[in-house]
Amino acid sequence: MESAIEVTGLLREYVTETGFLTRRRHEVQALRGISFDVRRGEIFGVLGPNGAGKTTLIKILSTMLSPSGGSARVLGFDVHSEAKRIRPRINVIFGGERSLYWRLTGSDNMRYFSDLYRVPEREQRHRIPELLELVGLQEKADVRVETYSKGMKQRLQIARGLVNRPEVLYLDEPSIGLDPIAAAELRRIVARLADQGTTIILTTHYMFEAEQLCRRIAVVDHGQIQALDTPEGLKRLAVGQEVVEVEVGGLLAGDLAQLRALPGVRHVAETYVGQCLLLTMQSDDPEQIESVLTGRASQYGLTAVRRRAASLEDAYLRLVGEAR
């Protein structure tokens, strides 16, 4: 199938200047040579830590920003020189409550953007109520946006991003601020759009969301793609099938070092769950590590040792953790 999006060696730097009398230039390399293709109707995920360059990538692909190098084509057109050809056929949804007219009602906002996207009046008449219903805002349609809750504003953004029935839709952390039910609803909407042929690029910090929706995921860090594969592929690549999870009340630094040094252990991620420390250990032979640790449970004061299937989060922590 043909590609909807082709990105080749994409570069982007930001140059900022500070100071008034003695101007100082700062350069930030936000993207350092990114390449990938997205097929039509695919949901493509972009994961990465804060500052990795995800939003920058979305802005370039949505023609808000020009690349500083490399090329990006959307629906066959160059994002820099042929932006006008692309714009009517794409849309973008950023997470958060900004970028709406708060003093106007929800339907006013929708009408305005429909006009800007040149949606004929006749179509607006049924599409706007449909979209508002899709995001569960039908009852708030004629109320000023400033009285909406955060999640409602976020939902309005989603509806707004669909006014032109985009062929390519960019979602930059779209589920921020949504309650779990609304987030699940959003996932359903996104999946259905893709079924209908919409090409989607999604950035998110929620692994679960990415795993559930995306056919392929790029893990980006420091402006580069660290890995690009299916969720399953990433897990295999980064951590193998299973990880060992260890719960412990607390751990001396020396003991932690000993655990890390066990033969076959490749990576140990530490997270705190309440008062408890949770170690996620990736290894060549999880079964053996599990039995070793169970044997030494009392020595280290481990309260639980178990094996579980590796998750995308494990893979992510490994990929991003290693690059740091």
Partner: peptide, 18 residues
């Protein structure tokens, strides 16, 4: 400040018209 600016820049309607 409201963050609408970037959206307005990328609609099919030329920004001058807006």
């Amino acid at each position: 400040r409201m963050g609408n600016f970037e959206y307005l820049l990328v609609t099919p309607t030329p920004f001058e018209t807006i």
